[in-house]
């Protein structure tokens, strides 16, 4: 299983676009918002956690279709399915690889982008914390969506339509935790909810995603 993780990481580093693209997209979203709503600090600072969360979510979405699509097209998914590796394990590893290449860079870059949005420094830890807890759920839910649409020719748009509604609870609790924490309110409850969604997704969705993959390979 670790071999699969290493292979996927190596692929995304060498193929290019894996690491940088999501981050660049995140940056562009963050830069576009002030152009849209105006440069006043009083407007930007309160909405910064929400923008960062929506931006992270969209950046995550961008690379979802790569999770299984390439392996499906070149036949490795067939071979993986016949290999002595549980499909559920392969799904988890693929989601982890996706998180390491997409989610983790977003978490680390969040304070920089937060500063761009005039976010007060007290909020940095909160946005990083909520993203760190929440983005694994985004990767796992996304892997489920990617497993559903892997056999389709133009699955990308459909994938967004399927996955975005599933992202709503994570987004709500994550952004809520970050903005409450930033404003100095009690943020334990939403933080725990984000963690709960992540753990629940990691525990249950691999089975659903593996089932979807098997159906698609039939």
């Amino acid at each position: 299983m670790i071999a699969l993780l290493i292979r996927d990481l190596r692929l995304s580093v060498r193929a290019g676009g894996g690491f940088g693209l999501g981050l660049a997209f995140f940056l562009i979203v963050t830069v576009l918002v002030p152009f849209g709503v105006g440069p006043e600090e009083a407007i930007l600072a309160p909405i910064a956690p929400g923008i960062l969360w929506v931006g992270a979510l969209l950046a995550c979405l961008l690379s979802l279709d790569r999770i299984f699509q390439l392996d499906y097209e070149d036949g490795s998914l067939d071979l993986l399915a016949t290999a002595p590796l549980p499909m559920e394990g392969a799904v988890v590893m693929k989601a982890v690889a996706h998180w390491l290449t997409t989610g983790l860079p977003l978490v680390l870059a969040a304070p920089v982008f937060g500063a761009l949005l005039n976010m007060p420094p007290e909020g940095f830890l909160w946005i990083m914390g909520s993203l760190a807890l929440g983005t694994p759920a985004l990767s796992m839910i996304g892997a489920f969506g990617a497993a559903l649409t892997v056999g389709l020719k133009r699955g990308g748009l459909l994938l967004s339509l399927l996955v975005l509604p599933l992202y709503i609870p994570t987004l709500i609790f994550g952004a809520e935790a970050a903005s409450r924490g930033m404003a100095g309110f009690e943020a334990g409850t939403p933080m725990l909810m984000v963690a709960g969604i992540t753990l629940g997704s990691l525990a249950l969705l691999p089975f659903a995603a593996a089932a979807a993959l098997r159906i698609n390979l039939r």
Partner: peptide, 30 residues
């Protein structure tokens, strides 16, 4: 655990070397 399947498609990764491709499958199959 007896069957190895070789399909039409080879399941090769273009950016990995010959050796890396084989090492990956070797570690999957142990």
């Amino acid at each position: 655990e007896a069957i190895a399947y070789g399909a039409h498609a080879d399941g090769l990764k273009a950016v990995l070397t010959v050796e890396e491709n084989l090492r990956f499958w070797a570690s999957v199959y142990g």
